[in-house]
Design a protein around this nucleic acid. Sequence first.
RNA 1: GGUCCCGUGGAGCAGCCUGGCCGUGCUCGCCACCCUGUCAAGGUGGAGGUCGCGGGUUCGAAUCCCGUCGGGACCGCCA
Length: 586
Amino acid sequence: MAEGERLAGGRTDMCGALRAADAGREVVLTGWVARRRDHGGVVFFDLRDREGVVQVVAHPGEAGAYGAAQGLRGEFVVRVTGPCRVRPEGTANANLPTGEVEVAARRIEVISESLTPPFPVEDRVEADENLRLKYRYLDLRRPEMTRVLRDRHRIFAIIRRYFDERGFVDVETPMLTKSTPEGARDFLVPSRLQRGKVYALPQSPQQFKQLLMVAGLDRYYQIVRCFRDEDLRADRHWEFTQLDLEMSFASEEDVFEALEGMFVRVWTEFLGLEVPTPFARLTYDEVMRRYGSDKPDVRYGMELADLTETFRGSGFRAFARAVEGGGVVKGFAAPGAASWSRKELDGLVQEATSRGAAGLVWIGFAGTEVHSPVARFLADEELAAIRAATGAGDGDLALLVADREDRTNVALDGLRRLMAARLGLVPEGTWAFLWVTEFPMFEWSDDEGKWVSTHHPFTSPATEDLAPETSRARAYDLVLNGFELGSGSVRIHRPELQSSVFDLLGIARPDAEEKFGHLLEAFRYGVPPHAGFAFGLDRVVMLLTGRDNIRDVIAFPKTASGIEPLTGAPSVPSQEQLDLLGIRLR
RNA sequence: GGUCCCGUGGAGCAGCCUGGCCGUGCUCGCCACCCUGUCAAGGUGGAGGUCGCGGGUUCGAAUCCCGUCGGGACCGCCA
């Protein structure tokens, strides 16, 4: 038997699982040395495995174990043999789940040694993220990171059980698939056998799941990796894991019911919390009006007020001009912020302009006093209207933006989130699920100079008359605490309607044939009406585990610039690889 | 493509605004020794840094300026 095998075997318990009930048993433990406390005469160390830590004590009476314990260093992998016993009176550690017991080492074998780690393998020290990613295996050894990965697994398991019980069939779809013109940038994979052609990694299995409906699978789900080559963010990653589902002979209501049931199950089993159903629903128009965002955080107030009419023809020219130019004036009141310093207020202006707004007007109300750089331009009735519309009371700060509607909303949404966080208005432990419905069918793309799908081109319109400016889609988003979890829609299942939508999107018939012909053709062979949804599981895990960064819930993530510090990916390809693919770099 | 923040022994920070007394300080780790009930053990001593890199200003730069690299947050982008 090889030495490694001999040493690896024989474990009787997990370190973190030992309890008072195990006292008196002879145990064999394996794990990593977390901390060593050498008292000269007696040596303690904490032995860590994925379940937690337990204290090992080495007494001089056990000469072999004692000697070995003195030579141990952090992150050594060891096997410890000895009795588990209740700790002496007064030495229990209430801070540890295993704190009532310890293992009196009779034998300590070093299985492998460790260099001094580049950062402490402990929860309380958060090392530089680049360093953590380079030594991700050490970072993941930290208990809180191990816990995140195991929580992620538990959440996925609950979801799989749920959909299995509900008759959904898990079907895998291709990773090497076809690039489509709509949507995000594709990751491309050059083909060796089909030289000069490329596959695309899926942005979502959208068309395949619709084809599975045509195939008669009826209810499909998949936990699937998807790829989008767009800039990364704290809550966005190139490769992410999506819960994808599709249901035949189903409408919005069936999808809502299935998903609400799933979230109730996850929240109940993972958090032990009741989530009331049905979830709140607001239309797209309403959330944009009240929150300036299609993913509003509805856990707190500070709703936006529309003051456009107040400032039409106003003596305050900056606002009047914005209204004349077709823009809007909107704002909200931040409670208790009237006393903020000039520096803090200037910071808010900076926040607004960095989000593209022309500017930000702040007005502090303190008794009869009005503090604002533009106070002298504002008529009394305008100030009164601002107070009435925003609900700004004594000590509150009104924040107003006048600009094109989209920029105004973006700026105010950002400020609203910022103020809520700074003013401590975000309630902890509250879960505000919200369906946002009746999205516009199309939106104008300045870049492309044409109408594009708000959701995706397979989304069914609410009515058959397709007017790009006014058509609504049978599309819906699910929002949780201001994060977009995912979106879905009732799909078009009639080829003629699908063709009309392609026409409106400016996708020429031959293009549509080339890009989506397979789907249109499939729809000629008996297609059931169907609807579906997809949401980002990384984001759900992030929220459920209380992390504020998506990289923390992904085992081996990339940095914001797309580098994976552990392996160093991406790398320069060899000439041989390029030749095989028929690619020349420039 | 844009805006902002960060880069100082192995880790986390302070020092920078207002240049010199600064390779100076704090916490941890590391090494050696002491210590028989600690648990972020304690004590004594020690090692360890071209202040990300390049250029400039200056008598003098961790500190000011320009550039660059790396990391992060955000805007754009993300059907």
